[in-house]
Nucleic acid binder design. Structure first.
Lengths: 138, 138, 138, 138
DNA sequence: GTGGTCTAGACCACG
DNA sequence: GTGGTCTAGACCACC
């Protein structure tokens, strides 16, 4: 769990609970959070970010339902062992929707196809996804 | 206005008025809608898509506010002469945010860098953006 | 939507929001609720069952996340077109867990294998699942 | 007490104390644990499964309350002489509820009646219940 | 009118 | 100490 830190900003348009789920998901996807890692307790995170505990609980609950976290009653939340919850069709559906939204926005902002391609490539290089060997950081 | 057609789908998560503004913006950005082109009247579009006329009016109003359309009283709505509303910095900021959101989602869905790159390229090829000369009115 | 009615009982051990999701899910699975059918509005159901509106909203939200319902902002909740959200592995995992729980409970209550088999067969006959042709009741 | 072994898994959704009571109950119901058999001591089980001793004690206490175990002070816990705690009506009620829950879940996961029947039969074959003579002590 | 989010505070179950 | 559920009431966005 090297260097995982959460930041939520109120009034940014995206709901707080969404900011939390997104950051945890990204942490897990990129390997910053590994299976078995403990997350900040509901109350601790709520206090630290000055939000309501229910909001944090809602976010964590959604992550549990999606198989990203496990709740150990009385002990806290932990990153779950990776498993595929969604069907291939559902994954594609979600990916296509995200792609549409992005390209659409980029085009509306008058970026050219080349600029978009280049930016995507850079971003992907930054994340360094190519290997992602299972089990690292465990 | 060769071949501009609107489609809204209720229950897709994105609000109807947003679907309308998005499609108009995309049409303008891709050149399908050119300055001076007339848009379907509020009532016609509302009837055709089986949505509330207020919703269409709200969408058009937002586009007028953003300088995408012009309202000619008694005649209808027309595509405005192109002008850049956002500063270069703001455009970049929005683009980066959209890119982050997209890559983030894709990574969380376990798509590889290659798959993402390929999908982006295909999408861009579909849109066929090159016709718009870079640098006009910037 | 012939004859769909909800009943929740407080203090029954199972949380209210769970009772709601379960009943809707069952209604959809058995065909009592067909794609496109409207559900009682959040506030209406809350009032009718004398529970808090947030509790109903939470239940509906979960069903939306699982692809059972669709939320049409300003209009209400509707039964979604059927789609497979879970992977085959995930479906099996959930089924096996449910089976274990059931058989376990039955055995602990001292029912014999024969009694269990017979009861299951009767229950399945009651539900009349064998055909379930898609599109009926739409 | 031929081959009775306990396993608890944290984070499986069901609370630890419940997993313990369930496994003991199942052992008794299937005959793996016979009246008079000694159970692992509270501290031994706690250490072995890496759980809190209070949790084990709580589980055993519940089983004593329900007449499944007997506590012999200073010697440990032993399987009690079998007696039926629940009335016939109550047993049926609980069984029916368990059956409903299971079939309901299976149907919602889109398993067919045949698949359900087959899975139940396999599960029952695994448990091998026939050894327990019907009607004893009822 | 609808749903969506957040807050505050209560009470219970688990370890 | 942890999480899980429910309530009450607020404010916003959409139609």
């Amino acid at each position: 769990m090297a260097g995982f830190h959460m930041t939520v900003s109120t009034g940014s348009g995206t709901p707080i609970y969404r900011q939390i789920t997104d950051q945890v998901r990204l942490g897990v996807a990129t390997g910053v959070l590994a299976p078995g890692d403990a997350l900040p307790s509901v109350r601790a995170l709520a206090e630290q970010q000055v939000v309501n505990a229910n909001t944090v609980a809602k976010a964590y609950a959604e992550l549990v339902r999606d198989g990203v976290l496990e709740s150990h009653h009385g002990k806290g939340f932990f990153v779950a062992r990776k498993r595929h919850v969604y069907s291939r069709a559902e994954r594609l559906r979600r990916f296509r929707q995200a792609l549409d939204t992005f390209v659409h926005e980029a085009v509306c902002l008058d970026f050219t196809a080349d600029e978009i391609r280049r930016a995507v490539n850079e971003k992907l290089a930054d994340l360094d996804l190519q290997s992602k060997p299972a089990g690292v950081n465990v």
